[in-house]
Design a protein around this nucleic acid. Structure first.
Lengths: 153, 153
DNA sequence: GGCATATAATAAGCTCGCTTATTATATGTA
DNA sequence: TACATATAATAAGCGAGCTTATTATATGCC
């Protein structure tokens, strides 16, 4: 009945469970900062890169532009982020942390880092590398073309 | 595109990307059946187990009861699923596939299976096992308390 | 029996992730 | 110059995942 140690749950399911568990746990611990995981990721990216356009931000945090627009709406409403016109492209907006945003990120930044370290406790660097290697392969497979279909028209 | 073969992203990020890529890809291919991944998972579980309560279903597909309630609302509205009173507990409802639900699952069942096989192409059984092992550990860490965990060899 | 507590399902309401469509601007090309 | 096409951001709307709260029933304990 119980799975043996070689019959672990399928990787497909595990990936889903881990992603969910990580988000749940993160938001549990980031509650006192009132930050969701995607919001934290956006702040982290802005803290690293300074001002970026929304498409660039979307690319950096692997999210879709519409999703980023919504996340920024909420962060902007709280005064954590600012949207400025792009002087080189009047369709685009440059997103920046406000002082409040930077301050909040500075105090919340450890949450993600420490949670990650906690999550991988008990795994050797080699084991972790094996996981990274396998997941990278899977990601690339999934983002690539499918064997039984054409390259687009 | 890719920085290099060995400079992989952090496992935290990879898990998120893979989960997202898998869902996106699945729903792309299951569009002709008008099924989302969580809906497919619910149907799969019901096809395997027959009638189960909603909490049991939630446990089986690693979802929260409120989420399951919503998924079942949509499936029931399409006549794929039926909620019957539980004779042993009048708070509970037993969920079952209808004939239509079973028929749809039979035709859609291959989608998930084949996509999974496609996703892990190029990984040896040993590599895949290493991924499963690492992810299991991470999941257990994240679901456990701020201490060491037990389960899994 | 009576009462506190736990549990099953749902309601309301939020964020996120997505699709499709719209508006405004940029850019390439004839 | 004019026109076709591409791109940046947003609007509307849906499914999913979550929280908090409510209703109904079950269960444990005195």
């Amino acid at each position: 009945m119980e799975p043996s140690n070689s019959a672990e749950a399928s990787v497909g399911y595990l990936v889903y469970e881990v992603a969910r568990a990580f988000r749940r746990r993160f938001e549990d611990e980031a509650r006192r900062h009132d930050l969701t995981l995607p919001q934290w990721r956006a702040l982290a990216e802005l803290a690293r890169k300074g001002g970026v356009s929304q498409v660039a931000l979307a690319g950096a945090i692997d999210a879709d532009p519409m999703t980023v627009s919504g996340i920024l709406d909420r962060l902007e409403k709280r005064g954590l982020v600012r949207r400025e016109p792009d002087p080189n492209d009047s369709r685009a907006k440059i997103v920046r942390l406000t002082d409040d945003g930077l301050a909040l990120y500075d105090t919340a930044k450890a949450v993600g880092v420490e949670l990650y370290e906690f999550a991988v406790l008990g795994l050797s660097p080699a084991e972790l590398d094996a996981v990274a290697h396998g997941l990278t392969r899977i990601r690339n497979n999934l983002n690539g073309p499918r064997a039984d279909q054409k390259e687009d028209a």
